[in-house]
Nucleic acid binder design. Structure first.
Lengths: 337, 337
DNA sequence: CTGAAAGCGCTAACAG
DNA sequence: CTGTTAGCGCTTTCAG
């Protein structure tokens, strides 16, 4: 706990105050706030009214101390590849809203760049977190299991762990990438380069594998494979610069933000016509992908579906296992007809 | 607290366990974890080691119950005008990081669209929140004061309340807008329209007032003033469509995301050359503003400075008052030379 | 259905 | 410096 002056008495109204006010026992007040606490309808009513009158609200901290639950879900994101990617800003926004809707609060954690969240998780225990959603960051299965053993829910968002058993929901990155391979080949491209995202991310692994596998199945190989170390606009322009050296007729970027950077580089630095001279494709379908200046062809991740599932797992209203949601190819104007 | 099964005993190791293990008192263990608790160096050492050995960590919930502090700061954003504006994604990211750095955690709250956060604040009390940062949402001064009286810190980020006394840090929106007025006039524009953001936001009020005032001082008046109801790309294109009817030679949008939408509309729907036929200006300097496809002239908000100040107020390491940080005019290519 | 009593795990006087 | 003793505000047996 940080640097804080001692506390001055700002006495809150407690359940005991309400009890005294009404001349009933404190535990009855407690029960009145429990949906299935045994209290006569009449008394519950009386208590709820008095509570309102006295401006009483149950203190979650105290409740949490005895129940070992907090009503709080932690959302963990890497600080590299987190909010700086608009896709995850959207994910965070939607997750927060969905969690809110079922009565949970979200505690927002950031994992240090290029480090998994193993360090952070034990700390979460200190807050009696009910569950954690790990998005855009990785975690070891050992830590994950340990967490689960503690009756805490965990779900990986767009991440998977080799050793299964820890539930996850992600986009079908492999299939999406395969579709893109087909699209590009069918449109007559033969000099294709793949711009990979950070190596340790499972999204990149799957997209890369899917794309390459499909190329191979159709008797082709990528002209080059370029690696970036982060998902950012800047990394996209750097990658495109390198890619340009191979004189490609199409570039598939591991995600949209990379693709946008690449596209801008090609158009404004190299004066290339997209898609006239070169096609570019991304993945995610972030808002900017549909902006008129880009009209990027991409694969949409169905975030709303993914979010509902994630929250359903957290609330135990669906089976905790691996879910893979198909993406949706969005044809716009960055690939030649 | 949401729907959750009862809890199964997953007994945590407590300070008492450590005490017993070492044959010292439980309170000594507690003190050992308090930076200025009176414990002999030797004993503290022993305790810290034993704690590590037993994998003991202080339970923040229990601590919070007795200290009435939580080490948690709430960040409140409106769901309209929150994360969907990249500016606030960045703010959230930086606030989170800065808070982390001083040992605080951030609880993320969203205010329902077009509603102030008055409803939410009392709920925060239930979590023993140490403070709250209100960004992109409004709050009544009554509620704010009540919160402060409770020894809780509050700071408004880019929002101000007529009745001062609640600390805030914001960009000098008025001055920034005046600079833009000067820029546009100096570059010879005479048919200028202002595209306003949502009426109830203080950022918009100040930008609008500054722009109009400066125009007036220089003997000019806007050709039109168009109102939007949200800060979004889509709202920007709609506004530009209306603006086009007035045949303006420059449009100042209340913020960047609006401006980007407007620019794309003008270029791709109306085939206008920016800035050849029409100039456009925004405010904020979000990452996309510098993308080659846009090169938007705008006023940069110094987010890092604003964030440091905000956190400093929260940690009481600086005087809680109104801070106004000057913005910085960023000249790019969307205004004619 | 209702009340009394015993904690949840920690901090904070208060003596020694 | 160290141990003892009360709570923080709520949930949860357990009797009645």
């Amino acid at each position: 706990m940080p640097l804080k002056p001692p506390n001055s008495r700002a006495p809150n109204v407690t359940s005991r105050d309400v009890a005294r006010f009404l001349g009933v026992s404190q535990s009855m007040v407690s029960r009145a706030f429990d949906t299935n606490g045994r209290v006569s309808a009449k008394n519950r009513d009386k208590i709820l009214k008095a509570a309102e009158l006295l401006d009483y609200r149950p203190n979650y901290i105290a409740r949490s101390l005895s129940t070992r639950r907090s009503g709080i879900i932690a959302i963990v994101m890497g600080s590299g590849g987190g909010l700086e990617n608009p896709f995850y800003a959207d994910v965070l926004d939607q997750l927060g809203a969905a969690l809110d809707a079922v009565g949970y609060r979200s505690l927002f954690f950031r994992a240090p760049p290029d480090q998994d969240v193993d360090e952070q998780l034990p700390a979460l225990r200190q807050y009696n977190i009910d569950g954690v959603i790990v998005a855009s960051a990785s975690i070891s299965s050992r830590i994950a299991r340990e967490f689960q053993r503690d009756q805490r829910r965990i779900v990986l968002f767009n991440r998977t762990i080799s050793n299964a058993l820890v539930p996850s929901v992600s986009c079908d990155n492999t299939a999406g990438a395969r579709e893109i391979a087909d699209l590009l080949i069918d449109r007559g491209h033969r000099r294709m380069v793949y711009v990979a995202g950070p190596e340790h991310t499972s999204t990149n692994r799957d997209r890369e594998a899917g794309f390459l596998a499909r190329l191979n199945e159709r008797g082709l190989a990528p002209t080059a494979l370029i690696r970036t170390t982060r998902y950012s606009f800047g990394a996209g322009v750097d990658a495109a610069r390198q890619a340009a050296g191979y004189n490609p007729d199409a570039i598939f970027f591991a995600n949209d933000i990379l693709a946008l950077g690449g596209m801008d580089y090609l158009r404004w630095e190299r004066r290339r016509i997209v898609p006239g001279q070169i096609s570019v494709v991304g993945f995610d379908d972030i808002p900017m992908a549909s902006w008129p200046a880009y009209r990027l062809t991409t694969v949409r991740q169905k975030v709303d579906e993914m979010v509902s599932l994630t929250v359903a797992i957290i609330t135990s209203s669906t089976e905790p296992r691996t879910y893979v949601i198909p993406g949706q190819l969005i044809l716009r104007d960055s690939v030649r007809p």
